[in-house]
Simulated assay, not measured.
Amino acid sequence: MDRYYWGVDLGGTKIECIVIDRNTDQPIVRERIETESVKGYQHILGQIKILIERCANIVGHYPNAVGFGTPGTLDPVHGVMKNCNTTALNGQPLDKDLNETLGIHAVIANDANCFALAETHFGVVKRIKPEAQIVFGIIMGTGVGSGIVVDGKCLYGCHGIAGEWGHNVLEPNGADCYCGKQGCVETVISGKGLERYYYELSSQALSLPEIVEQAKQNNHEAVKTITRLREYFGLAVARIINVLDPEIIVIGGGVGNIEALYQDIETQILPHLFNTELNTLIVKPELGDSAGVYGAAALVKNIS
């Protein structure tokens, strides 16, 4: 059994590796390197190899398995990456190539799954409800992503898209989404969706933090935008609770920082809930920008 958990957060601009002591759950190494993705797929693989070898030299041990958080999904049917904003990865058998390049067992999950895993094993869930069987992790920022953790492990599904909450229709005949549908959760309650709605009301282009500040000053259009967020969030989350019934939901991303989202949250969810009371905890994360790399390490907790 490997003494350490190894995780790599594979981003568009940087690649970060963490090595965590199995006995203490404390990181002993964290190193970064530039991705340089414009140089192509093979170069990215080379950068990962450089980083892994650098960390191995520091700890005096080469890993048997490494978890990788990626900006897309490994298609379980075709065995290649899809939906990556680091486009050089799309269509590539990343797990197989990592196995061959590094001589390790690579485990891959997207950033939302890694977020949910990180907060389950190392963050807020571990602290306040470590016995939780089902955890739903949400990233609400420029877009909307989510991941499901059951008994400490990611749920992937037969298409590799389990937890793809952001592309369910929330507002029929709503704004066009890049996925081809209209009124997806992502188009309605993402940061970009809220900014677009405010612009439609006011003809002013403000950032989400500016809209939040305007709402605090009782600007009519801003208040209406935040009210819309609260109402649609309640509807969208109630559907998740009705289907999965998680003990805890963790909300990350910039939209998740809006305090109004949590105020009297039961009144937004209960009208759409099958159950007559809300017992699911809805909380903020604790790991911040570190969630990706911690979640990648958590991918190998059950196999290394």
Results as ranks from 00 to 15, higher is better:
residue 5 Y to R: 05
residue 6 W to A: 03
residue 8 V to E: 06
residue 9 D to V: 04
residue 16 E to L: 08
residue 18 I to C: 05
residue 20 I to G: 06
residue 20 I to Q: 10
residue 23 N to F: 04
residue 28 I to W: 00
residue 29 V to F: 03
residue 29 V to G: 05
residue 29 V to N: 04
residue 32 R to T: 14
residue 32 R to H: 06
residue 33 I to K: 10
residue 33 I to L: 11
residue 36 E to M: 10
residue 36 E to G: 04
residue 40 G to V: 09
residue 40 G to F: 02
residue 45 L to S: 10
residue 45 L to P: 05
residue 46 G to T: 10
residue 47 Q to S: 13
residue 50 I to K: 15
residue 51 L to W: 05
residue 51 L to M: 06
residue 55 C to V: 13
residue 57 N to D: 14
residue 60 G to M: 07
residue 61 H to P: 00
residue 64 N to R: 14
residue 66 V to K: 09
residue 70 T to I: 15
residue 72 G to K: 07
residue 73 T to Y: 12
residue 76 P to A: 06
residue 83 N to C: 01
residue 83 N to E: 13
residue 86 T to M: 12
residue 86 T to A: 12
residue 90 N to T: 12
residue 93 P to V: 08
residue 105 H to A: 09
residue 106 A to C: 05
residue 107 V to L: 14
residue 107 V to S: 10
residue 111 D to A: 08
residue 112 A to K: 07
residue 119 E to C: 07
residue 120 T to N: 14
residue 120 T to G: 01
residue 121 H to T: 04
residue 123 G to T: 11
residue 124 V to W: 01
residue 127 R to I: 00
residue 127 R to P: 00
residue 140 M to K: 01
residue 140 M to F: 04
residue 141 G to S: 12
residue 141 G to I: 04
residue 143 G to D: 09
residue 143 G to A: 07
residue 145 G to K: 07
residue 146 S to E: 10
residue 148 I to Q: 07
residue 153 K to V: 02
residue 154 C to E: 03
residue 155 L to N: 01
residue 156 Y to H: 14
residue 160 G to F: 02
residue 162 A to F: 04
residue 169 V to A: 01
residue 171 E to Q: 14
residue 174 G to P: 06
residue 174 G to H: 08
residue 178 Y to N: 13
residue 183 G to R: 11
residue 185 V to K: 06
residue 185 V to N: 12
residue 186 E to P: 01
residue 187 T to Y: 01
residue 188 V to C: 08
residue 192 K to L: 12
residue 194 L to W: 03
residue 195 E to F: 01
residue 199 Y to R: 13
residue 201 L to D: 10
residue 204 Q to F: 01
residue 206 L to Y: 13
residue 207 S to V: 00
residue 208 L to Q: 08
residue 208 L to W: 03
residue 210 E to H: 11
residue 212 V to A: 13
residue 215 A to L: 02
residue 218 N to Q: 15
residue 221 E to W: 03
residue 224 K to N: 13
residue 228 R to Y: 14
residue 232 Y to T: 03
residue 235 L to I: 13
residue 235 L to P: 00
residue 235 L to N: 01
residue 237 V to N: 02
residue 238 A to N: 07
residue 239 R to S: 15
residue 239 R to V: 02
residue 250 V to E: 09
residue 251 I to M: 07
residue 254 G to E: 05
residue 255 V to W: 05
residue 264 D to Y: 06
residue 264 D to N: 15
residue 268 Q to A: 12
residue 272 H to D: 02
residue 275 N to T: 13
residue 276 T to H: 14
residue 278 L to D: 10
residue 280 T to W: 07
residue 285 P to T: 06
residue 288 G to W: 09
residue 289 D to Y: 08
residue 292 G to R: 10
residue 293 V to C: 11
residue 295 G to F: 03
residue 298 A to D: 10
residue 300 V to C: 05
residue 301 K to S: 12
